[in-house]
Amino acid sequence: MSFINYMAREINCKLVYYGPGLCGKTTNLQYIYERTNPEAKGKMISLATETERTLFFDFLPLSLGEIRGFKTRFHLYTVPGQVFYDASRKLILKGVDGVIFVADSQIERTEANLESVENLRTNLAEQGYSLDKLPYVVQYNKRDLPNVASVEELRGMLNPTNIPDFEAVARTGVGVFDTLKAVAKLVLTELKKNG
């Protein structure tokens, strides 16, 4: 649920990075944080365990520039990917405007990807959202690893409706901003439609 502030002439939107454990959600945010001008970003917050697994969420506020005199701000969140943190994942989806599903391209993570996308659908539905109606993009991450499934296979499993999808190597930044821009664009287009 975006927040339009006429007084501050600001529009705030919430984006959530979703996906199985260790797929690279936090790495996406870290890369965006490192490569963004200081004036366009706030502090990145990571609520993680001692072993750097996301415990609750990562948070990164970003400014994208102005549209018709309104500053556009995006709040980027990640969910904890590990299966048993489901209660936390549900909370983070509250008020979401757009979702990025980060898939782990490695063949052995096929099941985990499918389980996570199903979990996303269920958790959204619980809050009255439908994944098919929400601004939504898919990122096939870790394309640099040797044991990856082909994009066609991943697409067939994770993107049957042909939404925008991107190949990525979040560690080095490949595809990270393309993914972010695509979902931000969809969110703004949605606002335009509803306006």
Binding site: G42, K43, F56, F59, P61, H75, L91, K94, G95
Partner: peptide, 30 residues
Amino acid sequence: KNGQLIAASGDIDNVDTTSLASLTAGNIAA
């Protein structure tokens, strides 16, 4: 409840209100 800051007052130059807002909302959600 989604973590968007609506208004602030007081000694706000010395606190990161954006981060506090998001963490507060996370706290309330939890």
